[in-house]
Amino acid sequence: MDSAGTAGSSIAGRVVLITGGGTGIGAAVAERFAAEGARVVVAGRRIGPLKEVAASIGGLAVEMDAADAESVKQGLATILAEHGRLDVLVANAGGHGFSSVGDTDDAAWEASLRANLTTAFVAARESLPALIESRGQIVVISSLAGLFAGPSVAGYTVGKHALIGLTRTLARDYGRHGVRVNAVCPGWVTTPMADAEMDEFAGHAGLESRAAAYAAVTADVPLGRPAAPSEIASIVRFLGSGESSYMTGSVLVADGGAHIVDLPTVAFDHAGM
């Protein structure tokens, strides 16, 4: 039976920490958990957006660099002093890494891995004592880039792939302690980071709008559209509740079906065959 209770589904009263909680998927996850009565903590390096999210949901904003152990320890101390426990960690913080291997210098490589991998590793490691005590959950936000390689995104792709390895090793080692760890791999989601990519892509491709860019990058996706952040938040909520009580080490793909497409046959589609 999951720690969420006999029904296994309620998240009311649970303490949820979301790294990178100020925008995009993180903010949507915060809203979803708060709507069901969870005590939500949004954390990140930019306190302004965090305070806005926290104010809108009645949560707590904590300025914290998820890749820095001392910063995470201080953040957790604040959370435990305020709420007395931690039930769910959503390791959502991430960053860029958009260049090929040959064009990625040492500083850019280290920065990308720090943003996309070290943030989850450090936040998870420092949260483990509290999560073991509560028999809690970790939800790692990876990406479709954690399963496949896009063009010239070396640091991002490697970091997101490594997050799946981190998910599995945490699940393997800490399942006996009652901690469940699962990952989510979203495809295109209409977040501020993706919006910026679409704006850049639209300029290069001669497209008239951001919407046209999203339509272009999802043209061969079975559902034919990007996800809204709230759609990913629903999956995270499931993994952070007792409804997923016998799942650990799992990787859930939420990409509109992109991963099932056989690329060599896409040309047949375009030819109307």
Rank of each mutant, 00 (worst) to 15 (best):
K73C: 03
A43F: 07
G175H: 13
I132T: 09
V53Q: 07
G20R: 13
L252G: 03
M1G: 15
H177S: 14
M198N: 08
S56A: 14
K73T: 09
F268C: 02
V236Y: 02
L117F: 10
L128T: 07
T119P: 02
Y214D: 04
A211E: 15
G136R: 13
V101C: 01
E63M: 15
I138D: 06
G206C: 05
T248F: 02
L117R: 14
G175S: 15
A91Q: 03
V122A: 08
E231K: 12
P151V: 08
I141R: 03
A211T: 13
A66K: 10
A93V: 03
R210T: 14
A54Y: 01
A55L: 00
A54P: 01
E133H: 10
R45M: 05
R168H: 10
L252I: 15
V184S: 05
A28P: 01
V40N: 11
L113T: 14
V122P: 01
A69V: 11
T19K: 12
D262A: 02
S9W: 05
G242I: 07
V251P: 03
G8I: 05
E31I: 04
I47H: 11
R125A: 12
A216C: 00
T23D: 00
D2V: 00
P226Y: 09
T23P: 00
A162K: 11
A66Y: 06
V236H: 04
M1R: 12
V236I: 12
G20A: 07
S112Y: 14
P222V: 08
A108R: 15
T104Q: 06
T104P: 01
F148Q: 12
I57C: 09
G37R: 11
H204E: 09
I79E: 02
S134K: 02
E243K: 01
V158Y: 01
S112K: 15
A183W: 04
A38M: 09
D105V: 06
T119E: 01
D68H: 03
V266M: 10
Y174K: 12
R14G: 02
R85I: 02
S230K: 13
L60Y: 15
V221M: 03
S142G: 06
A205R: 14
A111M: 12
L117C: 11
S10D: 09
R32M: 07
K160P: 07
A35M: 03
T169I: 13
G8Q: 12
L207N: 11
